[in-house]
Design a protein around this nucleic acid. Structure first.
Lengths: 352, 352
DNA sequence: TTGTACGCGTTATCAG
DNA sequence: CTGATAACGCGTACAA
């Protein structure tokens, strides 16, 4: 009859179970409470001799406290949840990097949840994060499921939205200044001599950033009667639609330029241009929102408006941390400017 | 004197604390044990009437068990840790997607940890994951810190390595068949009429996949005395080195082709080619390992060998799950073939 | 079939 | 300054 029955380990390699605070206390000949104090409340002085013994025991056993148990007891986990609509989106990954750095510096750990572009999973994701006692949640999602995020917020968890607003969600919001970015791009195209604009976006489908960009484009047109313009929702299933629109837009002596609403659209436009045998900067002007590492390599280089992705991630985290420290201010909106990268695709070059 | 002192909530919005199993039990007029059984051991029959009451209470309170408490009690967390050297690497993200899908299907949650290319953080990451009682760990890291992973394994956690082997780490290993991929690429280039090869890689720095690819290239050269070849470690600080090598390689009537060891190098080569004013497929042949969505857009299209990223992620997860179910087999190696995508950069076109 | 009581690893309160 | 002891939310022998 074993005094300590071997736990039913699934893996035969299991050998040394993690040391607990109890083990440390025993080895140091003190109580658990003392060890705990040594760890968490360095200010309350302990007798040097005791501190020494505890320290030695901790080192000898390679002890580190269980975050799980800590979270259970404290109700806080030093975990921050990040829900992303689609990890494949380089924008999201870039934001993630910024958020992660900020978290790391503040001693938080980032728990990533990817929706794989399945909006229905949003509620599950948030509930799970909530269950894991995350201290805050960063959302870069559609927010189609109204109330999912709100429920988490009701449990007292600060929430911050990145790039995409949610309906009726009074949370901090961090994003590119979409209106400014579109305006800058249009101004640049206009000054470069293009006089007909085609704005191409993914199906708006209620995504706030897409809608804001499109609205900014319309506004530009309203302010500039001298330029003709249209906007087009490009569906991935109908690439032909884009080709046709491009061909049609170049009739007469109009000098057509495309403004792509994001990197996905940039890819589609570049595909279409290749199919048509056109050259960027000659047969077609182009600026795309979202900087990518390959933009300089396509044709004469694709002009872009880069987003301050890393800053967005850092700021989102900062908003959370601030609220975690007790500041209770009304929801804020932080809009950051984009950066125009001028390359060959937007500077007019007469073909010939 | 409040009977239930308000917990010191940092956020004024905090209202409804999460319902616990206790709350459910109380509402249903049963014991905690009964609720727990209702949840976990549906096989042990409960009186229908009681089951009904419990179910209703759960629904009414919107109760879901705390994964933290469960993990603490069970020693298992249904969490799988994924440590990635650099989330910016599209390969890693693609693997992540596969792993995530597999996890989701099996009811596991993926906890992501990014090293930001700082190998020193590897030990911390693994220890933290270990502390979170993750049931298994997927590693796509340098493994420079020998023993870090081994320590986790010692606690009985299965570990699987993706793309990069670790020294002295007897764990499952999942990867592209590097030798086969390089051979296929070289064969294709040779058949396409190129007769001088330049293999370009990031500094090997002990990274197993880089070394394997380079070794495969040398092997190819040994088997084909008729082709001349060199390999080059391209350092990001010295882009000029690559330009010089390209210029030098094209002397005489040699028809130079580059084999890029991964997508990062592909980018650098494309940059250099742009600087030199060369055209892919005419002045230079090219195949790159790693498929990207922009490969078709650069020049006449860049030929690539795509990795089965999603399958790698799924398989890595599958290895873990298998061991979690108790199968204790010796470490396996799973090598998957790549896919050659032939585009304009590798088919010779006499410049005119 | 159901309830009681204990422990998982920590932290916090309260005596000593 | 330190040590018992009671939670935190849950699972599970054991008893009823």
């Amino acid at each position: 009859m074993p005094s300590k029955p071997t736990p039913p380990s699934p893996n035969a390699a299991a050998q040394a179970p993690r040391a607990t605070i109890e083990d440390v206390a025993q080895k140091a000949g003190v109580s658990k409470a003392t060890v705990s104090r040594f760890l968490n409340r360095r200010d309350e002085l302990l007798t040097p001799a005791i501190a020494q013994r505890v320290e030695a025991a901790i080192a000898a056993l390679g002890y580190s406290p269980s975050p799980m148990a800590q979270a259970l007891k404290r109700g806080r986990s030093r975990l921050i949840g990040l829900v992303v609509a689609d990890v494949t989106n380089p924008f999201s990954v870039a934001v993630l990097r910024g958020a992660e750095k900020a978290c790391q510096e503040a001693g938080y750990l980032l728990m990533l949840f990817n929706l794989g572009d399945d909006g229905r999973r949003e509620r599950d994701a948030i509930e799970l994060l909530d269950a894991y006692q995350v201290d805050g949640i960063i959302l870069n999602t559609l927010g189609r499921d109204e109330g999912a995020a709100a429920a988490a917020a009701r449990h007292g968890r600060p929430v911050v939205l990145v790039d995409r607003r949610h309906a009726n969600m009074p949370a901090d919001f961090v994003s590119l200044d979409n209106a400014g970015a579109v305006r800058d791009a249009c101004d640049h195209l206009l000054q470069s001599g293009w006089n007909q604009f085609l704005f191409v976006t993914e199906p708006m489908a209620g995504v706030s950033s897409r809608m804001e960009r499109e609205a900014a484009f319309r506004l530009f047109l309203a302010d500039h009667p001298e330029v003709r313009g249209r906007s087009l929702e490009s569906h991935v299933e109908h690439p032909g639609r884009l080709d046709a629109e491009l061909r049609g837009g170049r009739e007469g002596d109009r000098r057509l330029a495309v403004l792509a609403s994001n990197a996905v659209i940039t890819l589609r436009v570049a595909d279409a241009v290749a199919r048509l045998g056109w050259r960027f900067g000659e047969d077609l002007g182009f600026v795309g929102i979202d900087e990518t590492d390959w933009a300089p390599l396509v044709g004469p280089g694709l002009s872009t408006v880069g987003q301050p992705t890393e800053a967005l991630g850092r700021l989102a985290t900062a908003c959370l941390l601030e609220r975690l420290q007790g500041r209770d201010v009304p929801p804020r909106q932080i809009l950051l400017p984009g950066t125009l990268n001028v390359r060959g695709s937007s500077v007019r070059k007469t073909s010939g």
